[in-house]
Computed example of a mutant assay.
Amino acid sequence: MTMAEEENPVSDALLEITSASLERCNLEPREMMLARIAALAAVDAPPASYLLNAGPAADVGITLEDVQGLLIAVAPIVGTPRVVAAASNLTMALGFAIGIEAAAATEAEAEG
């Protein structure tokens, strides 16, 4: 099957890469998600990247306080601009996620 024939070649590739990372990583799930969030801050990731990791992070018990502590810890390494951008991008991602949940709840109420 060629990439043109695949329905979601980019998301499929990202899923494969993530699966391989999970299979080969010896970190506990919580530690791995903290490392991923730190890496997102380090590379100035966009809100969508944080959004894709928000669910798995919450699933392993990562809290807002954990993320704040993580950003404080990496600030001397990645720099103030990256930490400020990460905080902003996280806020946008969380706002988007809350908006999606609210829309789904409204739709469910309308159907029920």
Rank of each mutant, 00 (worst) to 15 (best):
G112W: 10
T91H: 06
V43A: 00
V60R: 06
T80V: 13
M92L: 14
A39Y: 07
R82P: 00
V78Q: 04
D44V: 01
L34A: 02
P56N: 05
I98Q: 13
A86G: 07
L40G: 01
M1S: 09
L15S: 13
R82G: 00
A20T: 12
A54I: 06
V84A: 13
P9H: 08
I62Y: 02
T106Y: 05
I72Q: 09
E65G: 06
A38F: 05
A20K: 15
N89K: 00
D12H: 12
V83C: 09
M32W: 07
L22D: 13
S49L: 10
V67F: 03
R36V: 14
A54N: 08
D66V: 07
A13I: 06
N53I: 04
C25T: 14
N89D: 11
T91K: 08
N8C: 08
I37Y: 03
T18E: 08
E28A: 14
R82S: 14
V74R: 02
A103K: 15
V43W: 05
S49F: 09
L14C: 11
M1D: 03
A105Y: 04
T2K: 01
L70I: 09
L14K: 12
T80E: 15
I37K: 01
A13M: 15
E23R: 12
S11V: 13
E5Q: 14
A104T: 12
L40R: 00
P9F: 05
G79L: 07
E31T: 08
V78A: 07
S19P: 00
A48V: 12
V67C: 01
T2L: 03
L27V: 01
A108F: 06
S49W: 08
D66C: 06
L34E: 02
E5D: 13
V84E: 11
T80F: 14
T18D: 12
E31M: 07
A20P: 05
